[in-house]
């Protein structure tokens, strides 16, 4: 076996900041975020696309960062759970609802669910989509939680969807 595979230069805008790195072609986006940038809020539950703990937004669309190669994100925009709070550290309505409703126990699945739900809430807000319980559970079934039994997670997301549809109001709590 001869040496390390060749490295490729990439530039990814992560949480609004550009990062240039040389990476091996086989490096996953999740490893890039966690190991190169120290953004450990993106969790690895399986590294095989099954659990959704690694969900990030890639150009605004939810993606499993363990199945995405870092090189595939070259030139694109990635948002992780660390991007959710505002500059003053205030939580979004979703984060608030997760805390208040105990939508997390061990917290390991939480970043993935928050990113998935952020996308859902954004669709509701920007495209005026409404989500029935069935449509919502269909979407949320992309991610796994082993602790909560999902009930408080669904309730937290529904609460935020309701808030938005009631008030069409501000983003922050």
């Amino acid at each position: 076996m001869n040496g390390q595979p060749e490295k490729h230069p990439i530039v990814i805008a992560v949480n609004g900041e550009k990062h240039g790195e040389y990476v091996e072609p086989r490096m996953s986006l999740s490893d890039f975020l966690r190991d190169k940038l120290g953004l450990t809020g993106t969790h690895i539950g399986c590294h095989e696309g099954a659990c959704g703990a690694c969900t990030v937004l890639l150009d605004g669309v939810s993606a499993r960062s363990c199945l995405t190669l870092a090189t595939q994100a070259d030139g694109r925009q990635v948002d992780t759970v660390e991007s959710l709070v505002d500059d003053d550290g205030r939580l979004t309505l979703l984060q608030e609802a997760f805390v208040r409703r105990f939508a997390l126990q061990c917290g390991f699945c939480t970043p993935g669910f928050l990113m998935l739900a952020t996308e859902i809430v954004k669709e509701a807000q920007e495209e005026g989509r409404s989500f029935s319980r069935e449509a919502l559970t269909e979407r949320l079934s992309a991610n796994l939680c082993r602790c909560t039994g999902y009930v408080p997670i669904v309730e937290a997301v529904e609460e935020v969807l309701r808030t938005h549809s009631d008030s069409n109001g501000g983003e922050r709590a």
């Binding site: 450990t40 809020g41 959710l84 997760f98 997390l104 917290g107 390991f108």
Partner: peptide
């Protein structure tokens, strides 16, 4: 509410 939840929803867990 949970002592750790605020930290965890920020991605601030230390697993």
């Amino acid at each position: 509410v949970s002592l750790n939840a605020d930290r965890w929803v920020r991605g601030g867990g230390r697993y």
